[in-house]
Design a binder for these strands. Structure first.
Lengths: 336, 336
DNA sequence: ATGAAAGCGCTAACAG
DNA sequence: CTGTTAGCGCTTTCAT
């Protein structure tokens, strides 16, 4: 591989001139350099460049589950604004595993100019352990409990839960179960708290039986739904804290031969591109994840290219209720 | 940020000793170095290390669409084997755009020890332009037309198409339409060729009307299906070349009020985790994408840690027919 | 086992 | 505008 010295020699100039030429500055012998570059098929070493300049021209994104369409959309949104700004996107999938998240984060701190991350838990030690030397970090979809030194863009989870409960109660439901995300994660907790608060605002109690803990993955929704249906007093509606668990729950009901919404109403957080194709089409609390990604990227770019200091900013993105066919008024007797 | 010199100074040794200590070699003053590292919160610069050693300890993966569950699964499979082997995964999404693919590839050539890519087209100039200096590359899911210098792992697309056609004809269909992927991509072409060949093996002709070109994305399946249904002589079955286009096609049929499989049978390439939840559950040609990812990763690791030379290997992964409910014998009259 | 020193390839003062 | 030069932080001979 040719290096800058080879080019300088071939063009009969100094390496500095080549470097300047490469940086787009006007150089007297640009012609000759250009030719030398072409003939030697020279391309500058990004590693050396980074070592010297400290710039990577790339930003890192760490998500808990790239398989989740929500995060896939988020990433696209980030790409929408990062790429035109001249930044490569580098993706990492923590797979809901703190160790992987930590190793990804450590790696990205060294390899990127800035990081956008959806931290696994509110007390995320990896993120909290970051010091001033680390590149700017913005939190997306999930936030931390104690710290507020990071920019962040979060969905309005409390309102989302309220919309779901309001919808269900308006239909006449009162026996409403909840399949929660992990309470260590900020959306997990916020959605559950919102659910509980809204229920009690409606004067409705929620028994232990009706509160199931999941982990945001499909299998846990499946398990929780099976448990729910084995209860002596079955719920007439269930609110599931995310899309993947909702799929699991739907599969469980399907296997059980339970009809939705005839036997039970189902509503979930997070829309899906194919939600309308499901049987039945799924009623959801949706939001614009791509826009959420764009906002996060803009927040990060501001730190990168504008004022690196300044107080941390929190932006909340709205959610909305998308009524499809998986919810209706309670129809069947729901005792076993 | 402390550097190796600071540590050496604090420990009263040379930088060489620190470097050796870091590399896990036995050093006399390991104790002192260890303390210095801890006190200074030292962590070695990956960039400097790479510049010197040439190693990145990471491998790059470039896929056309991270939103597609197939590729998401593939990436997980790669991660399954790359991470235990000590390699970070770095993901890039080319978004079916040759320019993005090229920029990603150029970047990854500089930042990784090896690359796994699903090239957009068979005549992929970015990949074909790679020279001996580039890190090893393995092709996954899609291959190139001319070159065979790359290891690759490909699905048995021809068999997949045959299984689909056999299934449909066994049900009694003869008016079978096909929504194709881009013919510039290897699976696009292989699946279409396989379809045509199988059809003629059954003595069935395929009119121009029944051959629609898509781009593997949802919207194109939607459009194609609408066209198909506006034909004077409608097909009684349609074979869609991938999962995303199948979703689009299903949406079109749904909007049109067409019943599946009563009015038309639908089968597609690529399974989906939620295929059984669709209305109706989708009959597909499936394969184990995660395993496909694992194989690709193993192929790459062999180049990285074992024999870098050796002839390129091609492995073909099997496909299978998963019969659900979207296909049945032709029932309704299908003339307009 | 250890230290001195060269150098990976580049950029950015600095002096001209 | 140009060339000289000093590193960025590390690994790795090469002597010792």
């Amino acid at each position: 591989m040719a290096n800058i010295q080879d080019v300088a020699r071939a063009a009969g100039v100094s390496t500095a001139s080549v470097s300047r030429y490469l940086a787009g500055k006007t150089v007297r012998s640009g012609e000759a350099i250009s030719r030398a570059v072409r003939e030697l098929d020279y391309s500058p070493s990004a590693v050396a460049r980074t070592l010297k300049s400290g710039r990577h021209d790339s930003i890192g994104v760490i998500v808990p589950d790239i398989t989740n369409p929500f995060f896939a959309g988020l990433v696209k949104g980030i790409d929408d604004v990062a790429r035109p700004a001249g930044f490569q996107l580098i993706l990492g999938n923590s797979d809901e595993d703190p160790e992987q998240e930590n190793s990804l984060l450590e790696s990205f701190v060294q390899r990127t100019d800035g990081i956008i991350i959806a931290p696994l838990v509110e007390e995320d030690r990896s993120v909290l352990g970051l010091d001033d030397e680390s590149p700017p970090v913005v939190l997306v979809d999930r936030q931390l409990s104690v710290e507020s030194r990071f920019d962040r863009v979060i969905a309005d989870n409390a309102t989302g839960s309220r919309l779901a409960v309001d919808h269900l109660t308006a239909l006449g439901h009162s026996d409403i179960a909840f399949i929660s995300g992990p309470l260590m994660s900020s959306p997990g907790r916020a959605r559950r708290d919102g659910f509980l608060r809204s229920m009690s605002a409606h004067g409705l109690a929620v028994g232990e039986d009706y509160l199931h803990l999941g982990d945001f993955r499909e299998a846990s929704g499946f398990t929780a739904m099976n448990r729910l249906w084995s209860l002596a007093k079955r719920p007439t509606a269930v609110f599931v804290a995310n899309n993947l668990m909702a799929i699991g729950a739907l599969k469980a009901l399907h296997d059980l031969g339970v009809r939705v919404p005839d036997d039970i109403s189902v509503i979930s957080f997070d829309d899906l591109s194919f939600a309308s194709l499901l049987n039945p089409p799924l009623t959801v609390i949706g939001r614009d994840e791509r826009e959420q990604g764009r906002i996060a990227a803009r927040l990060l770019l501001r730190r990168l290219t504008g004022d690196p200091g300044g107080p941390a900013e929190k932006v909340t993105v709205p959610v909305d209720l998308v009524i499809r066919r998986s919810t209706s008024f309670p129809r069947s007797p729901h005792r076993k």
